[in-house]
Design a protein around this nucleic acid. Structure first.
Lengths: 273, 273
DNA sequence: TTCTGTGAACACGTTCACAGCG
DNA sequence: CGCTGTGAACGTGTTCACAGAA
């Protein structure tokens, strides 16, 4: 999950619940698949199955969009695809820039689901001069000095940050300053942005840690790691304990003032052959 | 955000709320940074700021772990790092395999936050024979035939799927069959797994779509795309409308029976120099 | 009848506000 | 006094169950 958005105003008149918005892309994907197979209609049960949710939730979700189904029959696939696309704003074209063309940036640039659905990669930007001009996914990488020009010339409002953690806040500031109002952040840092700018975060290591938590529970079903109210040894006791975290990428927050590039760190550049 | 877990049993005795678990890695990162700067104690206010949450939430979260703070003072940084690490199960070593070594798989293999925090990349696996033996992040890629052997020999319980969508379910089935009980899925597909297996999903394009939704709202503040209860034109009307989705990666669910490789699709392989 | 759409009940998560410890 | 820990209030999200359209 991604978090980090500034907190939506309490008065959400006429609005669709966040949880529902987050599921619309799921429905859209399932519907698109049905559409490709020329399936004309689908029941809430079937569609829910394909999207990996339960049917009650799906119906509730759709009820926020309006009454697009037919009782006793189901939903018209094409019509729903259109309605959801429109609701998500995918009927218009969204130019995006990707900053930080390491392996991850390259993966994003090549990602099919990115290029379709109304998202157009307007530019790839990297702080390493050695990357400049190099084609990735058929697009020549541009030097970071061009950032402001690119944003303004293309009317970019969505930026993707795939830089090392240390560069993320600076890149973010420049994006926002240049007019970007939505940011998808892959760097393991908390970004601070002014009011009105949305940030969504995708953190690879956090997801793994959550899995580890549950995995641990499975293993020692009888003996969970228990946090007893009676603390055996007071604070400071296990000082240099088993805790790892050395050479850790995201702990580089201190020297955030440095250069704006520093590629090949936690999210290293594409291997240069 | 990631979804798809089977739904936690209603009786969560002695358990930590999911929402809290999802934030623990955030706190841990902030604490690790403080620890590196040799900060001895931190208040809920400060730590919350560093982690990007509010202090009430943080205190509530910590209250589920036990009473690890000191009133009037704050929390002992080292001690908290240890407690959270232990709670998340990061004091033990988790061997993981990454299946699908395209750009994304390579990015994951190189990712610092992966290698630290107790996660050890036990193997990189790809279905492309051309990748076999090639070193990525210092580890030789192994052919997919070795999958079961690798899992069993290394006691791997966590698998990462970074294959194209079409291969994901098959890879998932093989992982589960071989003994993996936690899966982090980057492929844009809904995976079906037996009871007891956890799946977390990271979907790059879904995050963008959610951003687009909010971005759209900002633009036309006065005129949201409105879903009026009175439908202007009935189902089937905008049949071949503005909806895009052609050449879309995730719509390849039909031919899921094919070979188990198919690299270079939506998540293409590392450019071979 | 079948299946949608939705109020009402419930579960979960967040915030408030303050008691109480150091 | 400062700050944690936590009950209680509140808001959001999910599930239930059924009325009612086709």
């Amino acid at each position: 999950m991604a978090t980090g958005r500034p907190h939506r105003p309490a008065t959400r008149s006429r609005g669709i619940p966040e949880a529902t918005v987050a599921r619309l892309p799921l429905y859209l994907r399932a519907l698109t698949a049905l559409s490709e197979r020329s399936v004309p209609t689908v029941s809430s049960e079937e569609l829910a199955g394909a999207a990996g949710v339960n049917s009650a939730k799906l119906r509730k979700d759709f009820s926020y969009l309006g009454s697009y189904g037919t009782r006793g029959v189901g939903y018209d696939v094409e019509y729903l695809v259109y309605q959801i696309s429109r609701e998500l704003g995918l009927t218009q074209d969204w130019p995006v820039v990707i900053v930080g063309i390491g392996n991850l940036g390259a993966a994003l640039a090549n990602y099919g689901g990115f290029a379709s659905r109304g998202f157009r990669v307007a530019a790839l930007i990297d702080a390493d001069p050695g990357m400049t001009g190099r084609p990735v996914a058929g697009i020549a990488v541009q030097y970071i000095d061009e950032l402001e020009t690119i944003i303004e010339d293309n009317g970019v409002s969505i930026g993707v940050i795939a830089t090392p953690a240390g560069a993320a806040q600076q890149v973010c500031d420049r994006l926002v300053e240049a007019g970007v109002t939505s940011i998808l952040n892959f760097a393991p840092t908390v970004l601070s942005v002014p009011e009105g700018v949305d940030v969504r975060k995708v953190d690879l290591s956090i997801e793994l840690q959550i899995l580890a938590f549950h995995e641990q529970r499975k293993a020692g079903e009888a003996s969970p790691p228990a946090a007893p109210a009676s603390i055996p040894s007071g604070p400071g006791a296990p000082a240099g304990a088993v805790v790892r975290g050395r050479d850790d990428a995201e702990v580089r927050a201190e020297a955030r003032a440095g250069r704006d590039g520093d590629p090949g760190d936690d999210l290293p550049a594409v291997m240069p052959a």
